[in-house]
């Protein structure tokens, strides 16, 4: 059988090659930014680096954009969450809203550019920055040493710690009250590790899911639920009869924006912006607008909000 068909192969091969070449060309069209994002990051010790990127943005100094580049382009790309209310979410009209978005809008306004929001997933935030697909990440990004090796964090604009939710009838307002009580945590959370390290004697029940933990608290199978303070506040606000008696427990993590490693020009501009915003208490207003409706007035804004980039 094959002997009959073989004569056509070369011609069809030529056709295939042509089509594949066309596809490759199509792929090539999509490339908008050249530059090498990996090898170009300046050493961390550089102190006078901005001149390199601002003077010659078109040379291969990296795929990140300086402030001047962004202003020349007329828009900044900010990676945000699109499904993590109240930090970043999309409303019924398809518009981005939230604590991170208010901050992003203000940055766009002060840079004099329009803001292009790019929806990111928690796991791909670092990759979006490293590949220059966004200029800045404002996606409830917790500062960790591991992440700081790959991206440059700005000064923080928020801090989070643990919180303790309990029934209003028997509120837990001090961690010492939990001794001998049934404590609920969700597996794999900061709360679990914190309690195991600091209060190994507590009677802790661990659940796989948030919903299991909350129904256990509702059922009275536990006396208190230890979780992120933002989560505790939002849940107790939505569930009458429960209160977040402790709003700040354990070591506080900070939340900050991040730019691509080495983009010192944009980093410096944004940190200066944080100082300006601090002077007008911008994040307290942001808190009132976006977080208070969800967290209620149980929490003192100062326990969550960081002004001027200084904790």
């Amino acid at each position: 059988m094959p002997t009959i068909r073989s004569p056509h192969s070369p011609r069809v091969a030529a056709a295939t090659v042509t089509v594949l070449a066309a596809l490759a060309a199509l792929g090539g069209c999509g490339s908008t930014q050249a530059g090498d994002p990996v090898t170009s990051a300046p050493a961390e010790t550089v102190t006078s680096a901005p001149a390199v990127t601002t003077e010659a943005p078109t040379t291969a100094t990296g795929s990140f954009r300086s402030v001047a580049d962004i202003q020349a382009a007329g828009s900044i790309k900010i990676g945000v969450f699109s499904d993590k209310a109240p930090f970043g979410s999309v409303d019924a009209n398809g518009d981005y809203t939230g604590y991170d978005i208010e901050y992003g809008n203000r940055i766009g306004q002060d840079l004099g550019v329009t803001v292009e929001y790019v929806p990111v997933e928690a796991a791909s935030r670092v990759s979006f920055l490293e590949t220059g697909k966004v200029d800045l990440i404002l996606a409830n990004f917790t500062v960790t040493a591991e992440r700081a090796e790959k991206v440059d964090f700005l000064n923080p604009y928020m801090k989070v710690a643990l919180g303790v939710a309990s029934p209003e009838a028997a509120p837990i307002t001090d961690i010492a009250q939990l001794a001998g009580k049934k404590v609920i945590v969700v597996k794999g959370t900061t709360a679990e590790t914190y309690l195991a390290a600091n209060y190994p004697d507590f009677d802790v029940t661990k659940y796989e899911q948030y919903t299991e933990a909350t129904s256990a608290l509702l059922d009275g199978r536990g006396d208190a639920w230890v979780t992120d303070n933002t989560e505790a506040l939002a849940w107790t606000k939505a569930n009458p009869g429960f209160t977040t008696g402790i709003t700040s427990l354990g070591p506080a993590d900070t939340i900050a924006g991040a730019v691509q490693k080495g983009n010192k020009d944009l980093l410096d501009w944004l940190n200066a912006e944080l100082v300006t915003l601090g002077a007008e208490n911008f994040f307290h207003q942001d808190f009132e607008l976006t977080l208070e409706p969800v967290y209620g007035d149980v929490v003192d804004p100062d326990e969550l909000v960081v002004e001027g980039g200084q904790v």
Partner: peptide
């Protein structure tokens, strides 16, 4: 992602 890491081409 990897295409951008390796070649700088941004699709």
């Amino acid at each position: 992602f990897d295409l951008t890491y390796v070649t700088g081409v941004n699709l």
